[in-house]
Amino acid sequence: MRNPQRTEKIAFFFLFLATLVIALPVGLVVIIIISKGLPAINWQFLSDIPRQGMRSGGIFPAIMGTVYLVTGAIIFALPIGLLAAVYLSEYAKDNLLTRVIKLAIVNLAGVPSVVYGLFGLALFVVFFKFGASILSGSLTLGIMILPIIITASREALESVPYSFREVSYSLGASKWQTIRHIVLPNAIPGILTGTILGLGRAAGETAPILFTVAAFYLPQLPKSIFDQAMALPYHLYVISTQVPNVDEKIRYATALVLLVLVLCMNLVAILIRYQFRKRKKW
């Protein structure tokens, strides 16, 4: 005899098991990195240049390289992404063009990161002759995070009640004035969230910077945007696969710094979202 109640219990148990199979390793990964990486982290590790073929010393140039890259990516992607979101939420009609734009965004989000690397190499490094440089890398990362910024900003813009726009129009404000003074200010938290998530993504990606900017070993800070730079994720890749006999602790510590950087950004994004929901005025 089949007993539906018992079947249900068994089924739910397996669902729970599947969930554990995903959730436990996540926790484990974080715990392993923290417990093995934390002991090696000190001020010197964060502020010194790599020494002895990256087997000792610190990771300061890699941290700064990532900061430069991420800053460059945002400077490029935020204005375009934000305006594109404004177009989609405020101007786009329900027509073929809009559909194509949305598909293009979906596709940009789906292009493999290493293909972005190829594209950056072909367009910025070779065609525009920027060489392997912070400029090339930032632009490549910027295009890569564009869909994240557009999608998040658009959601934020669309969550501003339509009635606010009507009120603004009814007072004789123009479309742009309405966007500028009513829609954008009230969408800022959502836009900020999306931007920070984009930052986190850009900070963690390796493949797009492999051939567009990353320097294997460059124990000094770049002097201009046309210089190569080290970057945290690439540095982690290098010391874990390309350089033999690196102390495990240094690898874990580098992974920890990268992880903390990325997770902090995500945390900030989540906190902003949370604060905003709590304070929402309408």
Binding site: G204, Y237, E248
Partner: peptide
């Protein structure tokens, strides 16, 4: 809420970090 947060956390971990952990474990 906890599960959703840990899934988001997983999505945020850079692929090179996961690769590194995969290598050593």
């Amino acid at each position: 809420e906890i599960l959703k947060a840990s899934i988001e956390l997983l999505a945020a971990i850079p692929s090179v970090v996961l690769g590194f952990i995969g290598m050593v474990t």
